[in-house]
Simulated assay, not measured.
Amino acid sequence: MASWRDLVGYVKSSYQVMKEEPDEVRILYTFEDSDDEREQVVVLFREVLDGKHEWVQIVSPCGLVSDIHLQGFLEEIGHTTVAGGAAIIGEHVVVRHSLPLENLDINEFEDPLALVAATADQLEEKFVGGDDY
């Protein structure tokens, strides 16, 4: 993959796109091996560093800041998360991970995408008790 456009083309052919804007694609990630048909919203953002290096930021919400015990949440991420970290974006606690697009191979995108989605889904279940995102 060489550019944001290439990544968006791949994502549109592989996932259910919920919303698309020039530097953002929102998808519904479905866990194929899940017995209870769980899904997770994942947002892909195009970021440009130093005005020249394209990156993709993979973001998945876990719940509202007001609904999550942040210390326990961050401790859980510190003990169990392989890819991604936690952030607050607006009113939401999210799991996110960023990757450079230059020379990005598809498995270098797919694996972190799956990990971010699964981590956010598990944390949402544990700390919010539902599957709203």
Rank of each mutant, 00 (worst) to 15 (best):
M1D: 05
W4Y: 07
W4N: 03
R5V: 14
R5P: 00
D6K: 09
V8Q: 08
Y10Q: 09
V11M: 06
K12F: 02
Y15N: 06
M18H: 07
E20S: 14
E21A: 15
E21I: 03
P22A: 07
P22L: 01
D23Q: 12
D23G: 12
E24S: 14
E24T: 13
L28D: 11
Y29R: 05
F31H: 14
F31E: 10
E32R: 14
S34R: 02
D36I: 15
D36F: 10
E37Q: 13
R38D: 11
E39Q: 15
E39W: 10
Q40G: 10
V41H: 08
V41W: 04
V42L: 01
F45M: 03
F45L: 14
F45V: 03
E47G: 03
V48N: 06
V48H: 06
D50M: 11
D50A: 14
K52Q: 10
H53S: 11
H53D: 08
E54M: 01
W55T: 13
V56M: 07
I58L: 06
V59C: 09
V59H: 03
S60H: 06
P61G: 02
C62Q: 01
G63V: 05
G63D: 05
G63W: 05
L64A: 09
S66C: 00
S66Q: 09
D67K: 10
I68A: 01
H69I: 02
L70H: 06
Q71F: 05
F73A: 03
I77M: 11
G78E: 07
T80Y: 06
T80E: 05
T81A: 13
V82K: 07
A83V: 14
A83F: 06
G85K: 10
A86S: 12
A87V: 04
I88T: 13
I88C: 08
I89N: 04
G90A: 06
H92S: 01
V93W: 02
V93Q: 00
S98H: 07
S98K: 09
S98T: 12
L99A: 09
L99W: 07
P100K: 09
E102L: 12
E102H: 11
N103V: 04
L104F: 08
D105K: 10
D105M: 11
E108T: 08
F109L: 14
F109M: 04
E110Q: 12
E110P: 05
D111T: 15
P112N: 02
A114M: 07
A114V: 08
L115E: 08
V116W: 04
V116Y: 05
A117T: 02
A117E: 00
A117S: 03
T119R: 02
D121G: 11
D121Q: 12
Q122F: 11
L123M: 15
E125L: 13
K126F: 10
F127G: 04
G129Q: 07
G130V: 00
G130W: 00
D132L: 14
Y133T: 01
